[in-house]
Amino acid sequence: MQHGKSLEAQIKAKAAEIGFAACGIARADAAPKAGVRLRAWLADGSHGSMIWMEERAHHRESPAGLWPEVRSIIALGMSYAPATDPLALAGEGGIGRISVYAQGGDYHDVIKRRLKELARWLVGAAPGADVKVFVDTAPVMEKPLSEAAGLGWQGKHTNLVSREHGSWLFLGAIYTTLDLTPDNAGRTTCGSCDACLSACPTNAFPAPFRLDARRCISYLTIEHKGPIPTEFREAIGNRIYGCDDCLAVCPWNKFAAAAQANQAFLPRAELVAPELRDLLQLDDAAFREVFAGSPIKRIGRDRMVRNCLIAAGNSGDAGLVPVVASLLEDPTAEVRGAAIWALRQLDAGRWMAERKARLAVEADPEVLAEWAVQGPPPRGRI
């Protein structure tokens, strides 16, 4: 240990040197209400089809549930503040919108590498300490733990908000057996502001500080398998992977400097404003090539094309009709069903002609349900 400098101060200095924009410390039992809220949220079914959250709830609801020996949590945040307005491409017809966090390299890899570097240093600085590192995919409640460690507070949109970095922090944690001096917890500073709640296109917040994932565009485009519920399709607009609306409108973002973002998260040019026409023509091999090294890769080609078809249907771009119609032949029911909806939105006459030809040969019940839509076609889309 450096003379005259506490271990906690050294940890924070080392974290900053490695590239973390925020670092705080909490006791392992500092967020007892998080587990109660989690259980209530799961009981309400607000997690949708994310069964893995149910299955490991006993690990997730408290750090000790995952690792009984843990005494302290080192909470860390890495900025991915965007250099441009995340809402700039709203309504841009043939362009697909990808959430800011997914436009660059896979944050899981970057953050885990940095966490391991800090953990190795900590073991060297405090011999005998045991540590475990976690980022996102582990059953860890990063947001309430980060709030307990003073990185910020969970806003009304349920995401962490920082005074210095706004809504743009990737979170990670190091669990340790060390007894470290904790920081003061973050305090909610949302006041009467409800910008994030009002901005949600699908009304996914039944109340402040509560999210119904089943209505969230990020859930619908990333986690949800099968057809996207009809009631949300038009509200999705041209979003094809995730949604930044509730984050982007937060007033605290005016303090978030894009220059603080880690270089590893700079957007790839081809993912900033991708053409729907190009994405709709991807086969599995091409999808894997385009999204290599991206968190988007995990949803697979079929779900991405499904999302792009919903965006195409909302685009009003008749030039997309040929490629949309070609996907009526796709071997995947999820894609065929979305193509039917998109075609009806763009060209009702073509949709009716295709319907007559295809109803007799289609066997999948969900695809048949798309063809069975009754009533007049959308106005202005013929």
Rank of each mutant, 00 (worst) to 15 (best):
Q263S: 15
A264N: 05
A264I: 02
F265Y: 08
F265N: 03
L266E: 10
L266P: 02
L266K: 15
P267F: 02
R268D: 04
R268T: 02
R268P: 06
R268I: 01
R268L: 05
E270S: 13
E270R: 14
L271R: 14
A273S: 11
A273C: 06
R277Y: 09
R277D: 13
R277M: 09
D278F: 04
D278R: 10
L279M: 09
L280H: 10
L282Q: 05
D283L: 07
D283W: 06
D283A: 10
D283Q: 07
D284E: 14
A285K: 10
A286F: 04
A286C: 07
A286D: 09
F287T: 03
F287D: 03
R288I: 04
R288T: 05
E289R: 11
E289P: 02
V290Q: 11
V290Y: 02
V290T: 12
A292W: 07
G293M: 09
G293D: 05
S294H: 06
I296N: 06
I296F: 08
I296T: 13
K297R: 15
K297C: 14
R298T: 14
I299D: 12
I299Q: 13
I299P: 13
G300W: 00
G300L: 00
G300E: 00
R301D: 04
D302S: 14
D302P: 12
R303H: 14
R303M: 12
R303Q: 15
M304Q: 09
M304R: 01
M304N: 01
V305A: 01
V305S: 01
V305R: 04
V305T: 11
V305I: 15
R306K: 12
R306Y: 13
R306S: 12
N307W: 07
N307V: 09
N307E: 08
N307M: 10
C308F: 02
C308K: 01
L309P: 09
L309R: 11
L309H: 12
L309W: 09
L309S: 11
L309F: 13
I310M: 11
I310A: 14
I310Y: 08
A311T: 00
A311C: 00
G313K: 07
G313M: 07
N314C: 01
N314V: 01
N314W: 01
S315R: 01
S315E: 01
S315L: 02
G316S: 05
G316V: 04
D317E: 08
A318L: 08
